[in-house]
Amino acid sequence: MIMLDHVTMRYPTVTALDDVSFRVREGEFVFIVGSSGSGKTTLIKLLLQEIKPTVGEIVVDGMEYSRMKKNEIPMLRRKIGVVFQNFRLLKDRTVFENVAFAQQVIEKTQKEIRRQVPATLTMVGLADKYKQYPRELSGGEQQRVALARAIVNEPKIILADEPTGNLDPKKSLESMRLLEEINRRGTTVLVVTHDREIVNLMQKRVIVLKKGRLISDMEKGGYLDED
């Protein structure tokens, strides 16, 4: 489903990813871990084609990035649901509107929106907060709104870039269970996380990045101490 082939991403000052290769099969659940600045968000940006790799090829669901035309990019992105690291919710819109936004921009009808948004909000446990604005929500709740926005269009792949620390551990586990449930229904899930406990608990595949290099890739792994 996802393939990186010798991908290097160099910014003018740093090499954010250095010759990274791995594959993720359809329906897999993978954690990406690594300390701050190790290139995790860069990886997500590459998968979304927000940036292009300096070297290397990426293939997602059969689409080769180097050969893709500009007008195919939206179609690629519709296969991928993303939870951004800082959520990127729209401040001037309610919970409902934020989730509906994901459907509006891919031209779903009002009918579909009225059906799918409440169902998705119920799934993430925010049915009673649909009228609230992001600033009125806790960090964990905001994250679940972002998750609802990512899954509402039923993408084939979910990429979740978890924020560093600050989330209530119990709440984190809840949303992780949610991702697991979505994964069980067949969606490929990639989660960037710093939560050692959760990684150890879930026993999933773990890819470890360090200073842009892939230093470990284990099935049913635990959180690796890099140092």
Binding site: L48, E50, K70, N71, P74, M75, R77, R78, G81, V82, F84, R88, L90, F101, A102, V105, I106, E107, R149, N153
Partner: peptide, 16 residues
Amino acid sequence: KEEIAIMKLIGATDLF
């Protein structure tokens, strides 16, 4: 700006 950036990242077409 932010709204447009998100729109694009979640699959809005250029025309949209």
